[in-house]
């Protein structure tokens, strides 16, 4: 009798709660899986299929399988290579800027200063804003006739966004402004994790400030800094919102903008799917290189 009771017990307890552990688990997991499949997995697979067709979402014409046609056309198009070059230049300027500004800010904040918490919070604000809003108000800041930037820098009626050479820099500066706080945050975490006694040991060992920075601080922060760089590179590759709002120059046509135009203005759905896959492969390849460096830095 007692044996029967013990075997029954888990079920009775579950019934008392109303739901068994298994059904609670399913309740949480099933919606997530469903969303993932509907919004991530299905589009990923479907777009892979359309990448090999001449499908246009704007017409009712059926999609024709054209094999590698889209890829061949894209990779032979000099304009696409120009978009890639522009994007690469943009990523380098923007990520480099973010690393220098962000790490510099972190170095400044990594010491006892008054109102440190408040200053850190204020510095984090830009990355919490919507990129579209950021684009809109930087457009005002850059305005040649009443923009505050020209006013403060005494540049007269300098055309930040209309100048084909300057426009990409202007867009990158906005990205640096917006995302340096992210690098700062991660760097700050890395810097504060360096044990204070190592600096004391270096001081005893007669190391100067530069030697200490390059031999102790930087190597120990490198892994987390590398993570920041990976994130920012991947994100910078996808930059769309503020760049699209700020400038219509061909010199600022990043791949995301070109992709958007191809997909939703020209309705070349198949072609743009192929393009998106090329971008994905490039980003994954670059990330892989970083991850290799990251692992090396970690091993050190």
């Amino acid at each position: 009798m007692a044996d029967v009771m013990t075997r029954l017990e888990p079920d009775t307890r579950a019934a008392a709660r109303g739901l068994s552990d298994l059904s609670i688990r399913n309740l949480f997991i099933i919606p997530t899986i469903a969303f993932l499949i509907i919004f991530n997995v299905f589009p990923l697979i479907y777009s892979l299929y359309t990448a090999f067709t001449d499908y246009r979402a704007s017409t009712s014409a059926p999609a024709n399988w054209i094999g590698l046609g889209n890829f061949r056309e894209l990779l032979n198009d000099p304009n696409i290579w120009r978009n890639f070059t522009i994007t690469a230049k943009y990523v380098v300027i923007s990520v480099t800027g973010q690393v220098f500004v962000g790490f510099g800010l972190a170095m400044l904040l990594n010491r006892p200063i008054p109102l440190k918490g408040l200053i850190t919070t204020l510095l984090l604000l830009p990355m919490m804003l919507s990129p579209a809003v950021v684009g809109l108000f930087w457009k005002l800041l850059y305005d040649p006739s009443f923009g505050i930037i020209n006013f403060f820098l005494g540049l007269g009626k300098f055309e930040w966004l209309a100048d084909p050479q300057m426009a990409l820099w202007a867009v990158a500066i906005v990205d640096i402004w917006m995302w340096s706080p992210f690098v700062m945050l991660l760097s700050l975490a890395g810097l504060s994790a360096v044990p204070k006694h190592l600096y004391e040991a270096a001081e005893i060992d007669r190391a100067g400030p530069f030697y200490t920075f390059f031999r102790i601080t930087l190597p120990l922060v490198a892994p987390i800094l590398m993570i920041a760089i990976i994130f920012r590179t991947m994100e910078a590759f996808k930059t769309f919102d503020h760049a699209y709002i700020l400038s219509t120059q061909p010199t600022t046509e990043l791949i995301a903008i070109r992709l958007y135009k191809m997909a939703f203005l020209e309705w070349q759905t198949g072609m743009s799917s192929a393009f998106a896959y090329i971008v994905l492969i490039v980003v994954v390849a670059i990330t892989n290189i970083y991850v290799k460096y990251l692992n090396k830095a970690k091993a050190r």
Partner: peptide, 24 residues
């Protein structure tokens, strides 16, 4: 100074650790 926590530089080899004060 010898610290209780040893304070060795974790990213350097033993040789580099010992050489640190000389290299500095």
């Amino acid at each position: 100074f010898v610290f209780q926590s040893f304070s060795l530089y974790p990213h350097m080899t033993v040789r580099e650790n010992i050489a640190f004060p000389l290299r500095a």
